[in-house]
Amino acid sequence: MMSAARNFMSDNSRQRDEENLKEDSPTSKRAKLEGRFPLTRWELAAAVSVFLLFSTGLFSIFFTMPAAEYSKIKLPRSVSDLRVLKDHLGSYANDYQARFILGYCSTYIFMQTFMIPGTIFMSLLAGALFGVIRGLLLVVFNATAGASSCYFLSKLIGRPIINWLWPERLRFFQAEIAKRREKLLNYMLFLRITPTLPNTFINLASPIVDIPFHVFFFATLLGLIPASYITVRAGLALGDLKSVKDLYDFKTLAVLFLIGFVSMAPTILKRKRTYE
């Protein structure tokens, strides 16, 4: 009986050793890694290459700009940071307007392409430095260009990332798009105008759910105007702004949703006629 027990323990020990060897094998490690990180080596290499290409272009622009006190210039993360930045950049933006706008646009598009938080502060800065009309044109141009870059980047490597981060939301979005194929531009306008879905998610998910680029582009270009106008206009009065949350109070959100529902009116009317 003791011999049988020893054999049983020996078999269990061998089985555990084999399982440990399997877990330590390169194949097992690769499977675990793929379970945690969604990109393959080639997709990761493509993403890094695109990031380095954009980064090189951005740094090249900044290195050729006139000298400034760079120690005082940083990406703002709060309204107080933004006030300090505006004070330091006011005269510089006036003295080197064309070069400053090039640097501003490059930074905004870079942040929007790679989903770096803080573009709302860049929009406020545009209003503070350039006024409502020029600031609005700059913000809408940069937001559309950055969203378009993000769209094509997602087309290249986005599917595994968005399936990894937001699988449920992606399935919901795909179902909604499938139901609204005939009036897709109206629905995309509604999403852009209202805060129903985050813009980052829309940029990433649109090529995955087969939204044509021309629909994505025009919905972004037109749909971002109302919210951009609110943000740029608020930039004129940075002294009165305590927090970014103050930008979108109940009244502002109600206006945005009203504009959004107006953009959906053709779709709603068509459905009503169909049921009649």
Score class of each variant (00 low, 15 high):
Ala67Arg: 15
Met1His: 04
Leu138Pro: 10
Leu204Thr: 12
Ser71Ala: 03
Gly90Asp: 15
Ile208Pro: 13
Glu69Ala: 15
Cys150Met: 11
Thr196Leu: 15
Glu18Ala: 14
Pro117Thr: 05
Trp164Arg: 14
Phe201Lys: 06
Ile116Thr: 03
Cys105Asp: 01
Asn94Thr: 13
Glu276Asp: 12
Gly118Val: 01
Glu43Pro: 04
Ile116Trp: 04
Phe100Asp: 09
Asn12Ser: 14
Thr113Arg: 03
Gln112Ser: 14
Leu238Glu: 06
Ala126Met: 08
Pro76Ile: 09
Ser71Cys: 00
Phe121Arg: 07
Gln112Lys: 12
Asn7His: 09
Tyr70Gly: 05
Tyr70Ser: 09
Gln174Leu: 07
Trp166Tyr: 12
Ile268Val: 15
Val232Leu: 06
Asp249Ala: 11
Ser106Phe: 00
Arg273Glu: 15
Ile116Phe: 12
Leu125Trp: 05
Ala98Pro: 00
Ala178Thr: 08
Ile162Cys: 06
Ile120Leu: 14
Leu52Thr: 05
Pro38Gly: 09
Ser71Pro: 01
Pro212Ser: 10
Gln174Arg: 15
Asn199His: 10
Ala147Glu: 04
Leu258Asp: 00
Gln112Pro: 00
Arg159Cys: 06
Tyr108Gly: 04
Met65Asp: 11
Thr194Ala: 09
Arg171Gln: 14
Leu222Gln: 06
Leu204Phe: 10
Thr119His: 03
Gly260Val: 07
Ser55Arg: 06
Ile161Lys: 03
Asp24Pro: 00
Val139Ala: 11
Arg16Leu: 15
Thr200Tyr: 04
Lys183Asp: 08
Pro66Asp: 08
Arg6Cys: 01
Thr252Glu: 12
Ser243Asn: 15
Phe121Lys: 03
Ala254Arg: 04
Lys179Thr: 07
Leu256Gln: 07
Leu58Arg: 02
Gly158Gln: 03
Gly235Asn: 07
Phe201Cys: 11
Ala93Ser: 15
Phe213Asn: 03
Asp210Phe: 10
Ser55Trp: 13
Phe37Ala: 07
Arg273Pro: 00
Arg77Gln: 13
Leu258Lys: 04
Phe213Leu: 05
Arg273Asn: 08
